[in-house]
């Protein structure tokens, strides 16, 4: 046995070294830009393009103060707007996805296949393409340049519905639904008390996806909004770079603003991470 196991162990060790190197490279590839933002946001405007790229400086708090001072703290309003768009949008979208996914997975009704195929097709259409038609529709309703203009289109996420359907099919056994019906629970009660808790881990995934998508969304709010008090961070920071030819672009503030804007995302991922781990484990067992 030992003579057999020796040659198999060696390539195994080599393979893991290669894998480790690849993963380290991947990690460096992903983390270097973040490191750059971190270092660049510590530089003053004069140092930004003149000192060595990876040499940090000491002006981070000056930069944050300057950013906060821009038009009476408008940046923090953008931050609050982004939290509102992403928080409310993702929560509503998750609820709608859960309902739609559950219905598609567990109920039989005419046209079910067609509806699901249409939603699948919707997954393939990038949201950017829909931004202009959505603008024209909301303009007819006189709702452009309001919070609703950004919130409403983000409520429906075909990908979220698709994920929720897959997850409902796998995680909610039909027997439990039958048991709940026999016990006298109506459809709403079954959905709220039985189905939702069982789908929780999957819905966290849907929520996170949609939250990040809305947080980083640029095109939709860029087209919809004209009042910079309604802007999310993405559109606001873009404005600081495009001041027109007669104004210098505010690079330092934009870089600092970008750094601050990823902090809530990191915090969200760290808090919701445990649900993801459960989710992956649960999926592994069922497969």
């Amino acid at each position: 046995m030992t003579t057999v196991s020796l040659p198999t162990r060696k390539p195994g060790r080599n393979r893991s070294a290669v894998a480790t190197t690849l993963l380290l490279l991947g990690a460096a590839y992903c983390l270097l830009p973040v490191l750059w933002v971190l270092i660049a946001s510590s530089k003053s405007a004069g140092e930004l393009f003149s000192t060595f790229t990876l040499a940090p400086s000491t002006h981070l708090f000056d930069n944050i103060a300057e950013l906060s001072g821009y038009r009476d703290g408008l940046y923090w309003r953008w931050m609050a707007n982004t939290a509102l768009y992403a928080g409310v949008g993702a929560a509503a979208s998750t609820l709608i996805s859960a309902m739609a996914g559950y219905a598609l997975a567990k109920f039989d009704f005419p046209g079910k296949g067609t509806i699901f195929n249409i939603i699948l097709a919707g997954v393939l259409v990038p949201g950017v393409i829909l931004a202009i038609p959505q603008y024209l529709l909301l303009a007819k309703l006189g709702m452009t340049n309001t919070y609703w203009a950004v919130l409403l289109p983000s409520f429906i996420s075909p990908y979220g519905i698709y994920l929720a359907r897959i997850f409902a099919a796998a995680a909610v056994p039909t027997e439990i639904l039958e048991a709940s019906r026999i016990d006298g629970a109506g459809d709403w009660r079954t959905f709220a008390k039985v189905v939702l808790p069982m789908m929780r881990t999957g819905l966290v995934t849907v929520f996170l996806f949609q939250f990040v998508a809305i947080w980083n969304n640029f095109m939709l709010p860029y087209i919809m909004l004209g009042d910079d008090k309604l802007y999310p961070i993405t559109v606001g920071l873009n404005g600081l770079l495009n001041q027109g030819a007669s104004q210098p672009a505010m690079y330092t503030s934009v870089i600092t603003g970008a750094l601050i804007s990823i902090v809530p995302l990191i915090a969200l991922f760290l808090t919701l991470q445990r649900y993801w781990q459960v989710d992956l484990a649960a999926g592994g067992v069922k497969a």
Binding site: I118, I119, A121, G122, I129, L130, P133, L137, P153
Partner: peptide, 9 residues
């Protein structure tokens, strides 16, 4: 098909 999400909106 592609207009369905936005018809819902």
């Amino acid at each position: 098909k592609k207009f369905v999400p936005f018809a819902a909106a």
